[in-house]
């Protein structure tokens, strides 16, 4: 099951851009076979959960790639990591410092997206296992996520390091 590494190798080779088809079929989340649609609600919830699981794996792969790309062949130079103070004061490259800050922010963002996938997947699974009492309870579980990821205008948008 090194499908993502394979997928990645293929992507890098530039063989095709149709990631979704390959990834999807690799995970058994294909569209073949039961094109007539899923018969029971339970199956539909479970299938959606498995699909979101695939999404999470992709996000994790992206995180790995992002991290790997940060390790230059010479390894980290600890001196270079020290943030440069002021706009022109220091002799070092401001871009190196900026690049690393930006990386940290995207690593965090993708980590958050990965957690969001987990949270959605968990609820979809539970819905498929009849864990919730009724439709209303399922709705409530998803609405709770809505609150969790609410926008933070005072620190969002314009605060993105500007």
């Amino acid at each position: 099951m090194t499908t993502f590494e394979q997928e990645w190798a293929r992507l890098k080779a530039g063989a095709s851009t149709d990631v979704s088809t390959r990834l999807a079929s690799a995970d058994g989340w294909g569209n073949g076979g039961d094109s007539g649609g899923l018969r029971s609600d339970k199956k539909a919830w479970t299938a959606a959960a498995s699909g979101v699981g695939t999404l999470k794996e992709i996000v994790k792969t992206a995180l790995t790639e992002l991290e790997r790309a940060q390790k230059s062949p010479g390894g980290f130079d600890p001196l270079a990591v020290i943030p440069v103070m002021g706009p022109t004061a220091a002799p070092g490259s401001q871009c190196i410092a900026a690049q690393r800050e930006v990386y940290t922010s995207w690593k965090r963002y993708l980590d958050d997206v990965s957690s969001r996938c987990d949270a959605i997947k968990g609820r979809l699974e539970k819905a498929g296992e009849d864990h919730y009492k009724n439709d209303k309870a399922v709705e409530g579980a998803f609405d709770e996520l809505e609150k969790r990821y609410k926008d933070t205008p005072q620190v969002g948008g314009q605060s993105r390091g500007r």
């Binding site: 930006v102 922010s105 997206v113 609410k150 926008d151 969002g156 314009q158």
Partner: peptide, 15 residues
Amino acid sequence: LRRLTADDDLTVSAK
């Protein structure tokens, strides 16, 4: 580059 910092929340708003 710094402007391309990721948003700090997961709601992708109009802003």
